[in-house]
Amino acid sequence: MRVILNGQPHTLPGSCTVAELVAQLGLEGRRIAVEINREIVPRSRFAEHKVQEEDRIEIVHFVGGG
């Protein structure tokens, strides 16, 4: 399944949930936020929200800044 992840084309092995994607990326337990097609996916819905073909996914975290 092809999606756009943080602006880059990304291929997922098959159907997956946001929780599974986050785990694949090694981001479990991190302070991150996920947005799909410009809608925030609340953490409480990671396990049930299924990623769809061609979704535009943004995963953000905190970095140094002023």
Binding site: L27, V60, H61, F62
Partner: peptide, 12 residues
């Protein structure tokens, strides 16, 4: 204060 940016997917 901290900034909000994309996680770098490629560098892990």
């Amino acid at each position: 204060t901290v900034a909000v940016r994309r996680v770098n997917i490629t560098s892990r």
